[in-house]
Amino acid sequence: MRRNGPLALIFHVIFVIIMVAPILVVCLVAFTPEGYLSLPTNGFSLRWFRTIANYPEFIHAFWVSLGLGALSSFVALMFAVPAALSIARYRFRGRDALAALFLSPLMIPHVVLGIAFLRFFTSAGLGGSFAALIIAHVIIVFPFALRLTLAAATGMDLSVEMAAVSLGAGGWTLFRRVTLPLILPGVISGWALAFIQSFDDLTMTVFLAAPGTETLPVRMFLYIQDNIDPLVTSVSACVIAITMTALILLDRFYGLDRVLAGKGDTGR
């Protein structure tokens, strides 16, 4: 394959700058020493990171997001792992329809999901509750959990399981001692990707969250609606840092290209 020409490289550089600029500018503004939005031209300051401490609702929202992401991804996997094993290994009537159903939250706009869940949980008397958030998030992260688990289950050497069976393992023992360890990288990556999706979701959650169950994106969004000041940039910078850490871990652990291929045609 031939190398890129100078024109292509110029295009590439501009492209990358545009892709990075908005993220970079948020992180830079977060370090401003001024009391208003500005680039930190007169030295860096952590004052706006310290200011976060004076806004307990941001801190609370962070913990809500964290718990929600961790829990809903875990619950989604409890459902997704058996489903993935079944879809990966059996040919049965309705298999394709089931797979399409399980991936459908990717196709449905999150506004529509938010409205549907709001209506549903309000009639069920669960409006604004943390339980409702968990259930709703289980649905939206399910496709991500399913895909990566499915990829692992499909790629698994079935004769390893047969060997275990021939040695006397069966049922739960077989799953716990052989099947699960073999698909574990896929399961963990599925969890991580699901977590990020849940942690980032605004569109659906903004319909469901009530004061007390507001997630960080919802809190940030509502704050931005009123005014944009350096505080929200420092909070954003923290969120970006957390996501980047998760991203790098995911890359080390599983390979980001594989994870993102699983995210291929996704929704928000």
């Binding site: 990358v16 993220i23 931005i224």
Partner: peptide, 24 residues
């Protein structure tokens, strides 16, 4: 490296990314 730079934002909060544009 560049694949990571270009695809990575996919996983970064939309609110943060849009905020960046609002600032720009």
């Amino acid at each position: 490296f560049f694949l990571l730079v270009i695809l990575g934002p996919l996983l970064i909060s939309v609110v943060a990314r849009t905020l960046g544009w609002a600032l720009l």
